[in-house]
Amino acid sequence: MHLAYPAVLAALLFCTGLYGVLARRNAILVLMSVELMLNAVNLNLVAFDVWLSEAAQDTLHSGQALTLFTIAIAAAEIGIGLAIVLAVHRNRGTSDIDKLRDTAEGPEADGPDSDAAAAQADRAGKAEAAA
């Protein structure tokens, strides 16, 4: 089999996932897109492992082992990610990524004096969010 097939498919899947990460609003959809990206990497790993195990007589099967690891890590990541999304949803009432803007510069932060006030307001907002 031509190696370009799986490689190109992996690249396309990766970029699809990339688009999803960048464009989706719901945090769970972003997680799904991350899964897509991880799977693209997995496909690459498997394809190259198969290629190398024949071509270079590589018997370590590092590609497949790493694929398994990636799958396990992805499972862990999805668990933690969902827990975080749930916590955020519970605290903020939303799971939309573009509404979580605590790191934004406040609009009233204009002069050097108002920086402190903005930081204070920011902190207050965060405390409120944590509550």
Partner: peptide, 16 residues
Amino acid sequence: RRAQTGNVQTYVSALL
């Protein structure tokens, strides 16, 4: 400062 929107997706877009 205007670029600091707080939207993580914008940041990641620029990064990528």
